[in-house]
């Protein structure tokens, strides 16, 4: 582990912050995981159910996108189930999905760090027919800074390339946001490469703003944006230590 600067070292791995958004546009699917899908419930639509309890899962059955990159209506899209993380049995599928495209590989301990401490804040999108994991989101929630705000953190988000343009990513994000808010999140943050326009657009659609720019944040030397969603605006009025947040 490299030594830190005497006076201005970073508090944690800069590299560190696992990439929440770098994979949303680059993930490809080769996963052969056999994640269980027996715990699903069904809903008829996606991306519109912010009130869905986080612990529940939901199912998408049709495509609502008219994008040209989406398979034509002649080829029915496979239905997608959204399930919460339940056990280590799902881990291999999640890892395969994320590892395929991340430039920064995570050790299995990184996954376990999140999944074992905040299992209720991770969700999977499953191809019901194949039983494979085609989308995943992994999050954390803990007090942050001097103001001890509850800060939610979207650590990883990945959607298989073949399943893009179906709002799977935004559905997973909304489920995670809802779960974190229900668990008492005051704000939610994540990092993404500053050039990843599609990921930034996805989060901005949900009200995130670019809060900070992090110089050479990623291992490849690329800057990151820290995006932030304020879940409890009323806290702004009470915040007595805004600078240190």
């Amino acid at each position: 582990m490299p030594p830190k600067s005497k006076t201005k070292s970073k508090p944690k791995a800069k590299s560190g912050g696992p990439s929440a958004a770098t994979t949303t546009t680059t993930t490809t699917t080769t996963t052969t995981a056999t994640a269980p899908s027996d715990s699903t419930t069904t809903e008829s639509s996606h991306g519109s159910s912010t009130n869905t309890p986080a612990t529940k899962t939901k199912t998408e059955t049709t495509s609502s996108s008219s994008s040209s990159t989406v398979p034509s209506m002649a080829t029915p899209l496979p239905p997608i189930d959204y399930v919460g993380y339940e056990s280590e049995h799902q881990l291999q599928g999640m890892m395969s999905l994320i590892e395929n495209d991340l430039s920064e590989p995570y050790s299995i301990y990184t996954y376990r760090y999140f999944l074992h401490q905040w299992p209720k804040l991770s969700f999977l999108a499953m191809d019901r027919e194949k039983g494979t994991c085609i989308g995943v989101i992994v999050c954390r929630l803990e007090p942050h800074g001097h103001s001890a705000r509850n800060r939610g953190y979207i650590a990883m988000l990945a959607v298989s390339k073949e399943y893009r343009k179906r709002k799977i990513g935004s559905t997973l994000v909304l489920m995670a946001i809802e779960a974190m808010k229900s668990a008492g999140a005051d704000e939610i943050v994540l990092e993404t490469e500053y050039t990843n326009q599609s990921a930034i657009a996805l989060y901005q659609q949900m009200g995130f703003i670019k809060d900070k720019r992090l110089y050479r944040y990623y291992l490849n030397g690329v800057d990151a944006f820290r995006l932030k969603l304020l879940c409890k605006p009323e806290l702004l009025a009470l915040d007595l230590a805004p600078v240190n947040a």
């Binding site: 490299p2 600067s5 005497k6 201005k8 070292s9 970073k10 800069k14 992090l214 050479r216």
Partner: peptide
């Protein structure tokens, strides 16, 4: 660079 005027890792790596 060991004086810590710039940021370890993001600006420079002293290891």
């Amino acid at each position: 660079m060991r004086k810590g005027q710039v940021y370890e890792e993001e600006d420079f790596m002293t290891n």
